[in-house]
Computed example of a mutant assay.
Amino acid sequence: MPESSIKLSPLHEIARDLEATFTDVDHWRMPERFAGVEIETTSATTGVVLFDETAKGRIQVEGDASDTVLTSAFTLPNLEVGAGTHHDGTNVVRLRQDLFYLSVPPGAEAETIEKVRAQANGSLVTATDITDGRTAIRVIGPDAPTLMSKVCGLDFSEPSFPDGHARQSSVARTNQLIIRNDLGGNPAYSLVGSRSLGAYLWSVLMEAGAEWDIRPIGRSAHHELEKSTT
């Protein structure tokens, strides 16, 4: 792949300075591993880790008929505001009655938008690719709820913030969409916010998680955790 077509996460320099090895995912260059798969997966299942998931596509669907359109496109259940679901590689979260957030595999943005527009059939529903303007950081591990409570005022207990739900809130004084999507039997939260604040948020999370020996993980370890989820 030509170097000119490669996209870099706003966390790329941090990973490079940590001597990560990299792999190309669609048009993104992302960390493959840091300390090694076994060390990283152990940390994810016994403490807390951070994973850069910026390469995933992010789409915003808005309009009064968006519920009907997305239900037809992805066979969705009825979602209350703040609830989400997973369908064939796509995560869908309802943020308002007329606003949805979609997370899709890297490179699937155009196909997903076309699918939504085909179902819209002339109705006033917009599908916007917001991938390049956002950073996505996933906080994973049994200590993830406690870490999140240090940097955000929300209640991260199971009854208040169950798996599959989302909230919009301030995290370390940055506006973030927080999506709980557990991984490998462990709590996991995706933080989606402004690209320009991604490196700052990562550093705050690393500092806040020092008491649990927090570490970054690469795609190989994340893939192993995904396999244990299915």
Rank of each mutant, 00 (worst) to 15 (best):
A108F: 04
E53K: 01
G63R: 06
V69K: 09
A55V: 07
D132V: 00
T131N: 05
D132L: 12
A120N: 02
F51K: 11
D143Y: 09
A120F: 02
I39R: 04
H27S: 07
S43V: 02
F100K: 06
A118E: 14
A110Q: 14
A110W: 00
P31F: 08
R29K: 13
F34V: 01
N78M: 07
T135L: 08
E109F: 01
T75E: 15
A127E: 07
E109I: 07
E32V: 00
G47F: 03
L50H: 13
H87T: 15
E111S: 05
L99Y: 10
N121H: 11
E80C: 00
T135K: 08
G107W: 06
P106C: 04
R58A: 13
L50G: 13
D67W: 07
A108M: 10
N78W: 02
L79A: 05
A110P: 00
R117I: 04
I130P: 01
T90R: 10
E38W: 03
R96I: 00
M30Q: 11
V49S: 12
P106F: 03
A144I: 09
A118H: 12
T128H: 01
S123T: 15
T90G: 03
T45K: 15
V48N: 10
G122A: 10
I130K: 06
D132T: 03
V125G: 06
G57I: 09
A110K: 11
R117C: 04
N78G: 01
Q60N: 11
P77L: 04
A127V: 04
E40F: 02
T131Q: 04
T41P: 00
L102H: 07
E53Q: 12
E109T: 15
I140R: 02
T68W: 11
T90V: 15
E62F: 01
P106Y: 07
E40S: 07
I137V: 13
H87I: 13
V48T: 14
S103C: 02
T54K: 11
Y101Q: 12
T128M: 03
T54V: 09
R117W: 09
E53Y: 01
P106R: 02
T112K: 04
E114A: 15
V49R: 12
A127D: 08
P31I: 09
E38F: 03
E114C: 00
G82N: 12
T128N: 08
T90S: 09
W28Y: 05
R29C: 09
K150H: 12
T42A: 13
W28F: 06
V61H: 06
M148H: 03
G153R: 12
A118T: 13
T68L: 13
R29L: 05
V92N: 09
E114P: 00
G63N: 08
A118S: 14
R58Q: 15
G122H: 09
T146Q: 14
L102C: 11
G122F: 09
P145N: 07
I137R: 06
G57Y: 08
R134D: 01
T128P: 00
V139S: 06
L147N: 09
K56I: 02
G133K: 07
A110V: 12
M148G: 07
Q97A: 13
A118K: 10
D132Y: 00
I140G: 04
Q60S: 15
A55F: 03
G122D: 10
T90Y: 06
P77R: 11
R58G: 10
G36T: 10
